[in-house]
Design a binder for these strands. Structure first.
Lengths: 248, 248
DNA sequence: TATTATTGTGTAAAATATACACAATTAAAT
DNA sequence: ATTTAATTGTGTATATTTTACACAATAATA
């Protein structure tokens, strides 16, 4: 324990210790906290995002992220999972905190701090439970303006995803369990906004040796079918290595 | 504007629009928010962190991060800068939001969500304004236990820094304006916890061409003095390029 | 049976990363 | 003045990784 008591030059005052932590906390300003989820999907070689119409008169007609206020004694992660569950009916989705947005005027109803979460899910694997407020999937690139600061949040999460997908095996959450290398490449190209060399892309994944050939082929494609693969999460987790490489 | 009105299958209910955003917000649970700053410095080839004694009786003797509650209508970034200014007297320090910690029991006084910030500063360039509560610099590696969940926050910020320093030119904020390549290498080695090949390290930075030789040498060193450099922030900002490189 | 679209594959060249050693310089000790 | 100790500054050969690029094989459709 780092508890050694020093009689150093630093101890200029006798410490005035606070006994009542509850009272201390009670003196802090309190404010509402929300969680907003950027839910990405992937379909027809396009990155999609799940949005709802804003239910504020002031933002009538504008699209909004899926969010809710955080309950007393609710963890932020729990709140984000709750929102996802409520809207998509899905349980085991990929979810990660991105960052807080705190501009005092970001919400017309007053001061609200929001925590942005990024979620990735396989559009086929779930059905939207409710279509209230026109909940549905949009092509990411078609979204130009949104309610509140949600466009800024969306863009922040997109940039976060672009970076993240290059360093971590997140992308598979957007694909079916079994996918072809073509689908995987389309995913990377859609998210990164670049086109990649097909042979080099395949070689790259081959050299990682993290894809399991499931012994099946694409079906109903009007051309030579490709092999289907699964991502080897177990092997990835076991061998997760830290890279040292300075580059900026 | 993304406002096209669809008469699609999605519009199953007539939307019930909320007129009074203030009233809406008033119905949300409110909670205290704090900002905790992990302030890193670098001295004698060691990564340091600026800590204070906890002023809670319950954590008597334990070290604590520098934090404060967020004021009404105060941005999180502003709160973090305020804390830094109050404690170190420094204005233009590097500061970045890392993430929120929200466990309902993380604070003994009740529910408090905190936003962790990571700050990097040059220890020589400032004097601690106040030594209240034994504010001073600790070797990062010596800190084993802390008040609240602050050890977890510290470790999260350390990991964040390890990753970040490899991809962005943050490290220079920890060094004097003019520094030798040796100091720079010591910094990277201390943060990453590895030892690096001196010639390759220098070659790497030489190839980036982002260090300006200021034409001065180290002084008062008991050996051949090294050249001093400045980091070329202008050039870096101009040429900032996006790398595409899948690797995990 | 031909056409269309796409898969699966390899190699050569370029760029980058790694491993490694010695002469030059300064301060300090003699 | 000379030696010693510590560290700087530098280059090359090898291994690894990245890039650019073309053609035969396969399935569905016409």
């Amino acid at each position: 324990m780092t508890k050694k008591v020093t009689n150093s030059v630093f101890a200029t005052h006798a410490p005035h210790l606070i006994k009542d932590a509850v009272k201390l906390i009670a003196s802090y300003p309190k404010m509402p906290i929300t969680v907003d989820c950027v839910i990405f999907g992937f379909e027809e070689s396009e990155l999609k995002v799940l949005l709802i119409r804003s239910d504020l008169e002031m933002y009538k007609g504008f699209w909004s992220l899926l969010g809710d206020n955080v309950k007393d004694n609710e963890e932020l992660d729990t709140a984000a999972y709750r929102i996802l569950k409520e809207r998509t009916g899905m349980n085991d989705v990929y979810l990660d905190q991105v960052r807080a947005f705190s501009h005092p005027k970001r919400h017309p109803g007053g001061r609200v701090i929001t925590l942005a979460y990024c979620s990735l899910l396989n559009i086929q694997h779930h059905e939207l439970k409710i279509y209230a407020n026109e909940l549905h999937w949009h092509s990411f690139s078609s979204i130009k303006e949104m309610a509140f600061d949600h466009k800024e949040i969306l863009d922040t999460c997109h940039t976060w995803l672009q970076k993240r997908i290059q360093e971590h095996p997140l992308g598979f959450n957007l694909l079916p369990d079994k996918f072809s290398l073509r689908e995987l490449q389309n995913l990377y190209e859609a998210i990164l906004g670049v086109s990649l060399d097909r042979r080099n892309f395949r070689k790259k994944f081959a050299s990682m040796d993290l894809l399991i050939d499931v012994g099946e082929m694409e079906e109903d494609v009007p051309h030579r079918p490709g092999k289907l693969y699964k991502f080897n999460f177990d092997k990835y987790e076991k061998n997760k290595r830290k890279w040292i490489g300075i580059d900026f």
